[in-house]
Write a protein that binds this DNA or RNA. Structure first.
Lengths: 183, 183
DNA sequence: TTGCGCATGTAACCAGTTACATGATTTC
DNA sequence: GAAATCATGTAACTGGTTACATGCGCAA
C-alpha cells in the first residue's frame, strides 16, 4: 500500500487492463507514447518480480501449443487496492513541481479503475492546485527578470507556459466530462 | 566530457555564473523555480565532490571573519568545456521524449555560455524537431482513440498539448531573439 | 540557554541502466 | 541455415533518497 516507484504503478495500471508478459510490457514501452519508461529488460523484469513479491500481481508460465513459453502477470485484489489508493491520494503541491508525469499517469487509468465521476473530481482538484501555483511562478519571474539573461527568462517562461497549458487542458477536459454526463 | 547526470550539469551551470557553496546550491534548489532538483545534502555534496574529482570544479574552504567556514566551488576551464559541449550537442528525438527538462536546462544558461546567436540556433533546431515529432503523436491518438477510455485519451492529449505549447514557446522566443538582433 | 539557521558531511538502501547471456521459433 | 523476433533473465555499477550526525553563530 506504500509508495512505490512510478514504473511499478505504470505496470500495475497496464496489467489491470489485461494480463501481460514482460515482453508485452516491453513492446508497449517501446512502441506507444508510454515512452519515458525504459523498455530494457533490466528495468521491467525485476520490477514485475518486485510486484509479485509484494503480492500485487501473480504470474503463471504459459506454454501454449507452438508458442514460446511466456510468463503472464495478472493483478491481484491487493494490487487493485494499491493502484486505487495511489490514484486517490490528494494532489500535493510537490507532485506538481516534481512529478507532473506521475499525476498524468494517475489520471490515465482512472476511468477504468475509479470511474468517470472520480476522474472529473481529480481534474477539478488538479485545476485548483494549478490555479494557485502558477501565480507564484509569475511573481518570481517578475521579481527576477531584470537580473536574468534572456535565455534564463525564457526557460522559466517555458515552464510557466507548460503549467498554463495543463490548466487549459484540465478545464477543457472537465467540460468534456460534464457534457458526457448530461447526455 | 562524457555524459553526466542532469544534476551535475545544473551545478556546473550555476557555478559558471558565480562560485557557490553546497549550502548556496541547497537554497537555490529550495527557493527558486529550480525545484525538481532535490535540495537534500545527500544529493548535493556528493555531486559536487564528483565534479571536483572529474576536474570540472575546484573548491576552497573559506573562513571569513565572523562567518562559519564554507567550501566555495568555482568552475575550471575543463568544466566550462564540458558544460559547453553538453549544451552544443545536437538535439536527439530521444531527448524530446524522455528528457524535455534536460533540453530546457541546456538552454537556460546558454546566453551566458555560448551567446545569443547560438541560443537562437538552438531554438530553431528545437522547433524543427518538435514540428516533426508532434504529428507522430497525433497519428497514434487518431488511430487508437476508439479503443481508449476517455481518461486515457485525455492523458495522451495532454502530452501532445504540452509539446504544442513548447513549440509555440520556441517560435515566440525565436521572434524575440530576432527582434533584439535588429535593434 | 534554548532554539533556529548556517553549513557540511556520511551511510544504508534502492531502483534503474547497461551490458551480458541464453534459447526457442519463425521467416527468408 | 542465417537472421530476425519472441522471450526471459542476471550482474555490476551508479546516482539519488532518507536518515543520521555534527557543530558554529546569532537572536530571543
Amino acid at each position: 500500500m506504500k509508495d512505490y516507484s512510478l514504473l511499478g504503478y505504470a505496470l500495475l495500471g497496464l496489467i489491470y487492463q489485461q494480463p501481460l508478459s514482460g515482453y508485452d510490457v516491453k513492446k508497449i514501452f517501446a512502441l506507444t507514447p508510454m515512452t519515458g519508461f525504459s523498455d530494457s529488460p533490466g528495468a521491467i523484469y525485476p520490477a514485475l518480480r518486485k510486484l509479485e513479491q509484494l503480492g500485487f500481481v501473480r504470474s503463471e508460465v504459459q506454454q501454449l501449443a507452438g508458442l514460446r513459453r511466456r510468463r503472464a502477470f495478472e493483478i491481484t485484489s491487493k494490487g487493485v487496492a494499491s493502484l486505487k489508493a495511489w490514484q486517490n491520494k490528494p494532489i500535493a503541491e510537490e507532485d506538481m513541481v516534481r512529478d507532473m508525469a506521475e499525476l498524468l499517469l494517475r489520471f490515465a487509468f482512472m476511468d477504468e479503475t475509479l470511474g468517470e465521476e472520480r476522474s472529473l473530481a481529480f481534474l477539478q482538484e488538479f485545476a485548483g492546485k494549478l490555479s494557485a501555483y502558477i501565480p507564484t511562478l509569475r511573481r518570481y519571474l517578475d521579481a527576477h527578470a531584470s537580473v536574468m539573461s534572456m535565455s534564463g527568462r525564457l526557460a522559466l517562461e517555458s515552464g510557466i507556459q507548460e503549467y498554463e497549458a495543463r490548466l487549459a487542458w484540465a478545464k477543457n477536459s472537465i467540460a468534456r466530462y460534464r457534457r458526457r454526463k448530461k447526455e
